[in-house]
Every structure is written in C-alpha cells, then in structure tokens.
C-alpha cells in the first residue's frame, strides 16, 4: 500500500482564520511519495483517466516516453490535498489552478509548497508549486529536483 497519506490529526490540527494569515507567509512543505505505479493505477480507477501512457510501459515507449509517468491531475490532486490541510480544510478553497511543467515518475517524491501572495477582498491568494524529487528514469539525466506544477489558489477563511 501507498505511503502517500496525510494524517490529518498529526500534521495540520489547527483551524486557520483570516487573522492568522499574512502576505509572504510560507506553508510547511508537504511531501508525498515516493510515488509508485500502484498510485497511478489507483488514480486511474478513481478518476477515470485510463490513458495507458500512465500504466502500460510498452505503450508509453511507443508514444516516445521513456516509461510510464504520473497523471498531471494526480499530482494536482496531491497539491490540492496539501492546500486543504494548510488552510484548515478543502471546503475553504474557492479556486485552484494548475499548470503542468514537468512529468513526475515512479520513484519520485512530490514536494508541495505554498505561499500567501496577498489578501484581496477577504480572499487569500496563494501561489503553489509541486516539485518532483528523485533520480528519474535511468538514462534521462534529470535534475534531482524539478518544478512539476505551478499553480495558484483563492481561499476564503472565517474571520475569527
């Protein structure tokens, strides 16, 4: 089974309020993984994204990829999970936008970070990033750490 779980009670027990947020504030990094092919299969079954490029080694190679890789939305799903825990629950998220910049491979960790950019009309604007960390597929010579997702979110928090 996967180790990619957040223990809600352990990591972010506090309730966050608007008063507790200031621009420039960094949230504590959340690391998922190392990701496994089982994670890709589980996400395929749950999300409906059954593109074989994420599960079938031979097919992935036939499409020019060195091996299978994670769905962008799996990585975005982990990032949304981290965001939900940073802000006291996913029910506070009003907007979540992600742009996919690099593939994430089996064996990679996914390092999620977030920073408060500004507070506008009671909405907290947060910049997001998920980085892949690992050796990557053999022979690709990838950097050990690369940005995989950049994103932004709007979050609405209770005043007190």
């Amino acid at each position: 089974m996967s180790e990619n779980r957040i223990d809600t009670n352990r990591i972010f027990p506090q309730r966050l309020t608007l008063d507790g947020v200031t621009p420039g504030m960094d949230f504590e990094e959340v690391v998922f993984g190392p990701l496994t092919r089982d994670d890709f299969v589980r996400y395929a079954e749950a999300s409906g994204d059954d593109n074989p490029i994420h599960q079938d080694e031979e097919y992935a190679r036939s499409q020019g990829a060195p091996t299978v890789f994670a769905m962008g939305m799996l990585n975005a799903g982990f990032l949304a999970t981290a965001l939900g825990h940073w802000v006291g629950g996913p029910q506070h998220i009003r907007r979540f936008k992600t742009r996919f910049t690099n593939r994430v491979w089996a064996g990679d960790e996914l390092v999620c970070s977030g920073k408060v950019v500004s507070i506008e009309d009671g909405l907290i604007k947060i910049s997001l990033e998920a980085r892949r960390r690992g050796e990557g597929p053999e022979g690709l010579g990838l950097d050990d750490e690369q940005s995989a997702i950049v994103g932004e979110a709007d979050v609405e928090l209770p005043a007190d």
Binding site: R5, R42, S47, L74, H85, P90
Partner: peptide, 13 residues
C-alpha cells in the same frame, strides 16, 4: 476511493 488516491483518505470531511 478518490480521496485515498490523492493522499487524503483520513480526512473526515
């Protein structure tokens, strides 16, 4: 199943 797949299966919400 979806929450579990994105690492949030213990979230009571």
């Amino acid at each position: 199943r979806f929450a579990a797949a994105v690492g949030d299966e213990y979230n009571p919400i």
